[in-house]
C-alpha cells in the first residue's frame, strides 16, 4: 500500500501512521532519525491529536525514571573509610 502524502512545512512528505510513530520515538529523542524521517515524524506530530501525548508521556517517563537516582543512597561512611585505608595499604605495599 503506497504511503499517503501530507503537506507540512511547505513540502509534501509521506504520511506516518501512529503505529509507526510510536516506534520512532526513541530514535527521534536520541537524534538518530535521518532528516527525511524526522520531517515525517514532525509532520505527524503536528497533525495528530494523540501522538503528542504519547511523546510527552515518554519524556515524562524519562524524567520520572531519572528521579529514581535521588532516592538511591550515597557511599556508606564505613565502606568509604574501609576503601580509603585499603587504598593506603595497597599503595604502601607497592612502594615498599
Amino acid at each position: 500500500m503506497p504511503n499517503m502524502q501530507t503537506f507540512y512545512n511547505n513540502e509534501w512528505v509521506d504520511e506516518l501512521t501512529c503505529k509507526e510513530f510510536v516506534e520512532w520515538v526513541t530514535d527521534y529523542l536520541e537524534g538518530t532519525l535521518p532528516a527525511d524521517e524526522r520531517k515525517r515524524f514532525e509532520a505527524h506530530l503536528a497533525q495528530c491529536s494523540s501522538c503528542p501525548h504519547y511523546l510527552e508521556q515518554i519524556r515524562e517517563t524519562i524524567q520520572a525514571v531519572g528521579k529514581l537516582s535521588d532516592t538511591l543512597g550515597e557511599v556508606a561512611p564505613e565502606a568509604r573509610g574501609e576503601l580509603l585505608s585499603l587504598f593506603k595499604r595497597l599503595k604502601s605495599e607497592k612502594t615498599d
Binding site: 501512521t17 501512529c18 503505529k19 509507526e20 510510536v22 516506534e23 520515538v25 495528530c48 491529536s49 494523540s50 501522538c51 501525548h53 504519547y54 510527552e56 508521556q57 515524562e60 517517563t61 524524567q63 520520572a64 528521579k67
Partner: peptide
Amino acid sequence: PAVAPSAFAEDGWWRDETHPQAWRESPE
C-alpha cells in the same frame, strides 16, 4: 512492539478507546 498492535486500527492510527491522553498529573 512498543505499543500492543491491538491499540491501533487497521489504518495504523490509534483506536478511539486506546489513544493516549494527557496524564492527570505528571509522574515527576
